[in-house]
Design a protein around this nucleic acid. Structure first.
Length: 711
DNA sequence: CTAGGGTTAG
């Protein structure tokens, strides 16, 4: 869902007098060049290399853009409000102006060397004994009386380093302070903080830091990076920033470790501008970023789905002379997936293998997930084969990802084999994720019997089904029109305390449309009433023909605003279906209009000079038919006004991989016949209907002749 | 082993 692309960045960059530097040809980069080679040797469509014209070609002439001035068309997004134009502007910004003041120290903080004394074994045995006892003050402090002396600095460090859990480390630090035997050093605090970080005790870490400040023990880079990383672990990003700023204020220069830690904080906050700015200021100070930095940047751009950002990372690695390591590859693979570039991901993966790096579970999870989402079953199966042949590492996340991939590409038997393997394995027993994946597979195949059998098996085995699993099951039963079973499953989820989320509500909403006209309509509606009364109220509102468009619009906005972004389009699709089922065609068109207005159908209309395409692949049947009608009206008007038309018209429905997804093509096709419009199944493209300009013009003319004769 | 930063699931 598009938050309006703001001009924040333009302002920002104008402000700092940045100059625009065009991105170098991605083919010049080693990694990307190889990607192209791999792309072209596969069954799947490679991404087109980015061209400067790709954006202008896609010049939007959608209904929403045409109507934009009529209304405020902004829905809030749940995601952060950080909009930036770095990616959308198809450009990379650098600051070539002269070096600014130094922002990070060129040398990493040196560690003091220390070595443990010869009584190390005794002492270790003693600490292990301490680790066995309870962590309360009453249990722990008395046992400290038996501590082997002398309490040298080295011995104290050994104890602090070895004590577990954090409560004991913390108590021990306090205890040394009261013993007053040694001057308190920074390193004592740092080691203690590390232990506290393990226990996610940020408040205590902060307390220790203040104690250091109060008692004049200096905080160093290790202290700060530990504080920052603990804040991060506790999702206290503002705290991390606060301590980082304090560091500068006290005149301590961060070294590369602290610097990359704070880059990651800004990255997780989605503050891409700040990260780029900090990164470039660091570079201008002469810093040579390392793989960890590139991993941070890569993850950030991946989260933003920003392919240009990812290319920027490649460029920077090349210009700095850093070779990606396993983690960097993993991060960039994941990022490529999130940026919707499966072909580049595949190329990158092959490059990684060629370079001699052995993939780990995370690598394979990322790549399998990408192939699944891209519906590249051949690549996915080949990779799976290679995983087995090479004995590459597997874990249960990878197993579950493989199952999800099978769901994505419709591999039922393969999934069943995997699922059996998991049951027989020692360490990868199926969990609720695995069951959910299987329910998803059976659901999308419409195999109610197997889905219900699995549900019963789960109940017996004690694996807790979560809201996602229930959603899959309900979807499966709904599509099979088994409403009684569905209602039972829904209430059993309520009994188990499952809180219906927006996806479950969307699923119920679609079942409402399926149940319309059957005897179970009311029962299904009652489930939705339980899960989301506002949706039911809205349905009643739109079903009342007296309700004004303005009212519908206001309520529609309210419903969509309170729903998470991913379900807004499905909600709108279902609502249109519901209207069409009740023969409320006008209302259906109003809803499609509103959905378009609020950006729920951003790629419905694609126009080039040569062809106009109506892409209904993400629409429900009812919404697709409504969009087709709308399109034909518009085209009729354009023909009558004798405005410029392209050579070719396309309507794209796709042909779904799943049993239930195939209905769109069929319904669309029959609606084309019903409207008697001149679209024919395209011979070149499956899931596509096409018409020429001549077809269309003569259709409009014969229609108007017919209309004239009729009157 | 002996103080600090980065990567896996709807």
């Amino acid at each position: 869902m598009a938050a309006p692309l703001s001009t924040v960045v333009d302002v920002y960059f104008t402000d700092t007098k940045r100059t625009r530097l065009s991105v170098t040809n991605p083919c010049r980069q080693k990694g990307i060049r190889k990607c192209f080679i791999h792309c072209s040797t596969s069954n799947s469509t490679p991404e087109a290399p980015p061209t400067p014209t790709s954006d202008s070609k896609k010049k939007s002439t959608s209904l929403s853009d045409q109507l934009a001035p009529l209304a405020n068309k902004t829905l809030s997004t749940v995601a952060g409000d950080q909009s930036y134009a770095f990616s959308k502007g198809k450009s990379t910004w650098v600051n070539p102006t002269k070096a600014k003041r130094t922002v990070l120290s060129s040398e990493r903080q040196k560690r003091a060397t220390y070595s443990y004394s010869p009584q190390l074994k005794d002492l270790k045995r003693f600490v292990h004994k301490l680790n066995q006892c309870g962590s309360s003050e009453d249990e722990f402090l008395p046992s400290l009386e038996e501590i082997p002396r002398p309490l040298t600095r080295e011995n104290v460090l050994l104890i602090l380093n070895t004590l577990k859990p954090w409560q004991k480390t913390h108590l021990f630090l306090d205890w040394i302070k009261t013993q007053n035997l040694l001057p308190m050093e920074t390193i004592f605090y740092n080691v203690t903080m590390k232990s506290l970080r393990f226990g996610k005790q940020f408040a205590l870490i902060e307390e220790l830091a203040h104690q250091m400040i109060d008692t004049g023990v200096p905080l160093d880079n290790i202290t700060y990076s530990t504080i920052i990383s603990c804040a991060k672990k506790c999702n206290l990003y503002d705290k991390a920033v606060q301590w980082f700023e304090r560091m500068y204020k006290t005149g301590l220069m961060p070294d590369e470790v602290t610097y990359s830690a704070i880059l990651d904080v800004y990255a997780r906050l989605g503050k891409v501008e700040e990260v780029i700015s900090l990164y470039e200021r660091g570079r201008a100070s002469g810093w040579k970023p390392d793989p960890i930095t590139f991993s941070v940047l890569g993850k950030m751009f991946g989260e933003a789905g920003d392919y240009d950002g990812i290319r920027y990372v490649f460029q920077e690695m090349e210009s700095v002379g850093v070779q990606p390591n396993l983690v960097v590859y993993n991060t960039l693979l994941e990022a490529m997936g999130k940026a919707g570039k499966p072909g580049f991901a595949r190329g990158l993966f092959e490059e990684m293998i060629e370079s001699g790096i052995v993939p780990n579970e995370k690598t394979l999870t990322a790549v399998i997930k990408i192939y699944g989402k891209a519906r590249w079953s051949r690549d996915a199966l080949e990779l799976w084969q290679r995983m087995k042949e090479n004995d590459w590492p597997m874990d249960f996340i990878l197993y579950n990802t493989l199952l999800n991939m099978c769901a994505d590409v419709g591999l039922v038997e393969e999934a069943e084999t995997l699922f059996r393997d998991m049951k027989q394995s020692a360490h990868c027993k199926p969990d609720s994720w695995s069951y959910t994946a299987m329910l998803n597979i059976y659901g999308s195949q419409g195999d109610v019997d197997k889905a219900m059998k699995l549900f019963e098996e789960m109940c017996k085995s004690g694996v807790e089904l979560n809201v996602m699993g229930f959603t899959c099951l309900i979807q499966c039963l709904g599509r099979a029109m088994e409403f009684d079973g569905l209602v039972r499953v829904f209430y059993s989820s309520v009994e188990r305390g499952i809180k219906p989320d927006d996806r479950l509500c969307g699923c119920l909403l679609s079942v409402v449309s399926l149940s319309q006209g059957s005897k179970d309509e009311e029962k299904v509606l009652a489930c939705l009433q339980e899960a989301n009364p506002k949706l039911v109220a809205f349905i009643q509102l739109i079903e009342d023909e007296k309700t004004s468009f303005e009212t519908v619009k206001e309520e529609f906005k309210g419903i969509m605003n309170s729903a998470v972004v991913e379900v807004r389009r499905p909600f709108c699709n279902c609502l249109i279906d519901i209207c069409r089922n009740k023969d409320l065609l006008e209302r259906a068109h109003e809803l499609l209009y509103l959905g378009t207005l609020y950006g729920l159908y951003p790629s419905l209309h694609n126009k080039t000079d040569e062809e106009w395409c109506l892409d209904v692949r993400s629409l429900s049947v009812g919404a697709a038919l409504t969009a087709l009608e709308e399109w034909m009206w518009t085209l009729t008007k354009i023909v009558k006004r004798e405005e410029t038309l392209p050579e070719l018209f396309l309507a794209q429905t796709g042909t779904g991989a799943h049993k239930f997804a195939q209905g769109l093509h069929v319904s669309f096709s029959s609606h084309l016949r019903k409207l008697a419009v001149p679209f024919r199944q395209s011979e070149e493209k499956v899931g596509c209907f096409s018409a020429t300009r001549e077809d269309l013009i003569s259709w409009v003319q014969s229609n108007s002749t017919a209309a004239a004769t009729a009157t």
